[in-house]
Design a protein around this nucleic acid. Structure first.
Lengths: 363, 363
DNA sequence: ATGAAAGCGCTAACAT
DNA sequence: ATGTTAGCGCTTTCAT
């Protein structure tokens, strides 16, 4: 591999018989330039196969036309779809996209952000792994535009995009109740968050002085929707119906679901709080040889590719993931362009998809 | 958002009472420095909250510690998993990852590569959308390390990673034949490639002067495996059993499969050539109300998350996607470190997973 | 071991 | 409209 020294603006200028400034002006498309010199420079650039060095340009302008994305795990369909939306918007604007995984670890998140800022990205989209104590995000927001996705952070006034988890879960659970379900199981990742017990959370959910909904993890928000729907229907909350999974692992989820199903009066339907939980739950139902919806009904938060095939089709709350990515990228670009406005909260509405995995119970 | 001017090496040097060269040496960890000055500089850097500007460093060293990845579509599980593997290896080496989508369009691929090279990436991993006429890749390979993934390019001597598609398909089809299947349908994306008709391909597959296997699209390679298995078993090839889909669209695939199933003597088993084809095929089978494996058997190339749940579990040829990404990234980093060796072809072996979607036919 | 100075490739004042 | 010059923040000779 021979690396021929690449042509610089000085080379082009020399060949065109103009100054570097003029060459820069036509090549960089800024400032004045006459048609004559213009052609000269363009021709010279072509002859030499000139390619601009964005690094040099960025060093001086202070802008890289590159943004960073810190995802939980880019291989999960949730982030992969979001990433696609982000990427589409950026491509249109000729921006680059640097990606990293946090694996839900605050240390990795900090490292990822340091890497990205040192590479001088113009802005960052982060799906923060902690909604509190995120001091690094607070100081980050002071030095560059930041958009949060999926989760918000306490006391951080920056743009963010997410979905109306509480409302969507409420609607979803309300339908189950209308269909005669009374023992509604839920499978969620409740490892994180300030509430030690689910009952404590339920207590608080019913008090008037409830903390800002946005400051809860999505799974807690979905649980809140679950509680709200029950309260509205006058149904009690039985916390033995909630499988509290302590990780995003499929195996842990499967085990938790098995425990949930092994009780005397097992739930007639299961509601899962996200894609990971849904996969573990499906695995558990298959192992337990339970048919959907004859033996047990199922509704999932987050729609996945296979839900349309798996007979009889799995009902889902579909999050507009690609749109979330597009929105986040759009907001970030506006900030990068200099938009000075109060922090915006974009709350997209999930779509309820019914396919036949919920049995109507005759009560 | 107030942007306090960021501390530079000059600021640190001034505060520490040393020259910028010395400050640079300790901060950049190169050259000599005495313990005394060292502490001074480190302390000053800490006080000022100094963060190096990698851009400036890169401009001078000519290396950005960033590589680019041109995928077909990052939201597909295939690329998303590969990307994760790439990302893991890079993270360990403190490299950044810029990603782009080609959407299987040569124009977009060219644009993506231009964007990435202008940002001065140290190397590129590309899943090329065309295996011939890829001049831009040839000239790219002359100026920076390049690793190809999933597909190779005619006449391009660079490192590449893929799987043994021919062998894996052959093994897979051979098992179907052993199980008594005689009418084996295949669903593949055969839009691209030099062969106008499947029969012409089969002719060539049987001739001794066969072109380099690596210079075929994966779906053609898989079809070759299909042909080989048939030839070995002395079974004729009936091209009416091959659904030739002309895009990666699920709808097109579904239609093609419906046509395949509407013939008098329809196939007893379907073999799909990749994840996209599998999804379309599943949708078609559900619509046609065919049960797996009672009414029709199914084997898929590429294992997807849901294949373990969908009763009775879908048999699959599992590609080590994450490993493919790790391997590609590893090879690229070696080249970036200066490795000078002939082009390497890494061919990973897929794993055959049997779950129960193939019925043993009594013949 | 340290400092002075040059310069990576480009843009941005400032002249003219 | 064009050229001259001075950097952006850092690394890298080359002296000392």
């Amino acid at each position: 591999m021979i690396k021929p020294r690449k042509a610089t603006i000085a080379d082009v200028a020399r060949r065109a018989g103009v100054s570097t400034a003029t060459a820069g002006r036509v090549l960089g498309d800024y400032g004045y330039s006459s048609g004559e010199k213009r052609d000269l420079v363009l021709q010279a650039a072509k002859d030499l196969g000139y390619r601009p060095n964005q690094l040099a340009r960025s060093l001086i302008t202070g802008r890289t036309r590159t943004i960073g994305f810190v995802a939980g795990d880019i291989q999960s369909p949730f982030y992969a779809k979001i990433l696609r939306g982000v990427s589409d918007v950026l491509e249109r604007e000729d921006f680059g996209l640097l990606i990293t995984n946090s694996d839900e670890s605050i240390q990795q998140e900090v490292c990822a952000i340091r890497l990205l800022t040192e590479k001088q990205v113009d802005g960052l989209i982060v799906s923060p792994c902690d909604i509190e104590g995120a001091d690094h995000l607070r100081s980050l927001a002071e030095i560059m535009p930041l958009v949060l996705i999926d989760r918000m952070v306490d006391g951080l006034q920056v743009d963010s995009v997410g979905v109306d988890s509480v409302g969507a879960a409420r609607t979803c659970i309300a339908r189950l109740i209308e269909n005669g379900h009374r023992r509604i199981g839920m499978v969620g990742e409740f490892h994180t968050g300030p509430w030690t017990s689910l009952d404590a959370f339920v207590q608080m959910a019913r008090s008037t002085a409830f903390p800002n909904l946005n400051l809860m993890y999505p799974s807690w928000q979905r649980f809140l929707g679950y509680v709200r729907a029950h309260d509205e229907a006058g149904l009690p909350i039985d916390s033995s119906l909630i499988a509290r999974v302590n990780s995003y692992s499929t195996d842990d989820t499967e085990r938790a679901v098995h425990r949930l199903l092994s009780v005397d009066d097992r739930p007639t339907v299961l509601f899962t709080s996200d894609g990971q939980m849904t996969q573990g739950t499906m695995a558990a139902l298959i192992t337990a040889r339970l048919r959907i919806p004859e033996d047990i009904s199922l509704v999932a938060f987050d729609d996945l590719d296979w839900m349309a095939f798996v007979p009889p089709g799995i009902d889902a709350v579909a999050q507009p993931r690609r749109k979330m990515g597009e929105t986040a990228a759009g907001m970030l670009l506006e900030r990068i362009e200099g938009l000075d406005a109060p922090a915006r909260r974009e709350r997209l509405s999930p779509r309820q998809i019914q396919r036949g995995s919920v049995l109507a119970l005759s009560t």
